[in-house]
Design a protein around this nucleic acid. Structure first.
Lengths: 347, 347
DNA sequence: TCCGATAATGTTATCGGTAACTCTAACCTA
DNA sequence: TAGGTTAGAGTTACCGATAACATTATCGGA
């Protein structure tokens, strides 16, 4: 019946203006609370806006304002509780600061990452919180720089790229995690690590080596296996590596939570018990479900904080604009949580 | 020095056009592969585009094309592995179909949900995969309908809203999960459930009741506790409920993975062992970390498929446009996975 | 009483693209 | 050889908003 009251899908400020008998500009002023408007017109325009169920078109606004109020979050593994917790922190911060979040999941793949960089550029997002796949992400980041898209690196740094970053203190936490094993009496400590193209993996290895050195233990590269921070379909390489370690390690340090799960399955698959036969420690919590059975001794990174502070830093940088201050690097310590996966080695 | 080669941030088709000595329209045609362009001009335009590092402005395009190629994914708990797996499936599908994904996390809160609906409308996204907080989400969905934004409901339906949906078969899986307990000899089976404002919670309760009925067991509402599908800070209500159940149940059916973790902590907190003293089953897997200790008997929903198929359905609906076919409802069965959290009750 | 300041609103150009239409040669055909 | 096609462009208007400037009405003070 009454066509008027039925909200059509495409109401614009022009429709509002016509009905309220004002110019579109006046409507715009009411929406944005700018300029001088008499209370009378303001009320009238407001009423018409409600009648017609008006919602401003953010795309049109973005085009003229040259800002989208969208921030992009690029992570490398959306199934990893570490990153989903980061995502939560990032979203909370962005919302609080008046931004929306577009997200992408590179799966540690450079190709996917490249695609996302293209998306980021064409969407004209205001900034990016970027967990790079690795050192080879450099050209992607340079592309962002060339297009003047502000970004903050997350979790990993990239040599040759100067920028803001939020990071966990990988080296220090790795050192302490390794020392914890040494203090329990372990002498043959193996390490499974993510790919060394990731700075975090390199720093964790460094921390591990440093701990060994501090306690006059030899470093034997055969005891280090490089795999991937994200789940691998084929674990046979890791399995073969572990099976062929002689003498067998009494403890294993896993570079992150995913690797921990993988190596534990391999260890148990060989009929060994944790921690009786082999102790295990790792980076990052395994997710809320592990509260059921708090088992693994971990260095828990402040994932939520990394996401939250990362977005804050990003927005600061965006607001600074051209008068760029010095690059900021936030390095958050990890918390060592001792549970039941570590014991002294058999004598 | 050479200003020319330094890529500035705001290259437009007009810059390309000027340099290639053609009209902007010709550039547009080259970009979109439309119309007739001679190979010579096409090559020239392409070259200039590369020289200037041109990236099309998606916002401008969206404005004129009246489509954004963005789909929105609204979930209720981003820390729940069920939903992150959904998100992964959703993103994979969207990418494959040429869409980007904006995401939001309502935390089961109607207020946050309302804010996201506003975002969805103002961003003019092409469609929404929507996990509603509950029945009271209805006005939000009606708003989407009023604005002709296509959406597909995820995980839960909302009475009074006719639309597409992708769902797990809650009732059937709940029935089988309960029957499994009954077949093991349990007679006093308690249930902790999510809020009954969610259709999934109601259906799981129905399945539970149906199973009892089929086996001539009485339904006692005191054995059912309504809590929340997402993590609660305060578990004292659940704790009091469980402590005051006399006679004590020999098994508990948890409405989802989060509730399972909570009730298990309560059970164990009372010095009871699972499954020796109390058996526990639940909906949804607890996340990859539980592979370490596959313990809980669950009805595993096909989370990835729900996300993937949801986005597919959404895109189909978008492409159909006005000539709308009938509403489609995809109901995916859950897989019963028997593990170690169920035993026969003590005699 | 006339002028300038101020409040309240309107007009025009623009953001970066694309649709729809127009234009101009060259080419083909009867 | 006139008239119609077609390839390969260009022109114009518009998507929905806002910035910058222009315009009118009102009012106080000299």
């Amino acid at each position: 019946m009454s066509r008027e009251t039925e909200p059509r899908s495409k109401v614009t400020i022009y429709d509002i203006a016509a009905r309220a008998k004002v110019s579109p500009m006046t409507v715009s002023r009411v929406i944005n609370n700018t300029g001088k408007i008499s209370e009378k017109t303001r009320a009238r325009v407001r009423r018409v806006m409600e009648e017609l169920n008006y919602v401003p078109n953010q795309m049109a606004r973005s085009l003229v304002l040259q800002e989208t109020r969208i921030l992009f979050l690029l992570i490398t593994d959306i199934t990893n509780p570490f990153f989903t917790t980061v995502a939560r922190g990032a979203e909370d911060a962005a919302r609080k600061l008046g931004y929306h979040v577009l997200f992408g999941n590179s799966d540690e793949s450079l190709d996917k990452e490249a695609e996302y960089v293209q998306t980021i550029l064409s969407m004209r997002v205001d900034g990016v919180l970027f967990a790079p796949a690795g050192d080879l992400s450099r050209p992607h980041l340079e592309k962002l720089k060339a297009h003047k898209v502000p970004f903050v690196l997350l979790d990993r740094e990239v040599p040759g790229i100067e920028c803001d970053a939020v990071l966990g203190d990988s080296k220090e936490a790795a050192r302490r995690l390794t020392e914890l094993l040494i203090e329990r009496g372990h002498r043959r400590i193996a390490m499974v690590n993510g790919s060394s193209v990731a700075s975090s993996a390199r720093l964790r290895l460094e921390g591990y080596r440093e701990a060994l050195k501090m306690h006059q233990l030899p470093f034997d590269e055969r005891y280090v296996h490089e795999s991937s921070f994200s789940r691998l379909a084929d674990l046979s390489a890791m399995e073969a590596w572990f099976a062929n370690l002689h003498p067998a390690p009494t403890a294993v340090f896993a570079g992150n939570n995913v690797l921990a799960v993988e190596i534990i399955q391999i260890i148990r698959g060989r009929g060994l018990k944790i921690p009786e036969d082999v102790s295990v420690v790792c980076f990052d919590e395994l997710g809320a479900a592990t509260e059921l059975d708090p088992f693994l001794t971990v260095a828990a990174q402040q994932a939520y904080q990394l996401g939250y502070l990362g977005m804050q830093l990003l927005v600061e940088r965006i607001r600074e604009g051209d008068k760029a201050g010095p690059w900021k690097k936030l390095m958050l310590p990890a918390e060592l949580i001792e549970r039941r996966s570590v014991a002294s080695p058999r004598t």
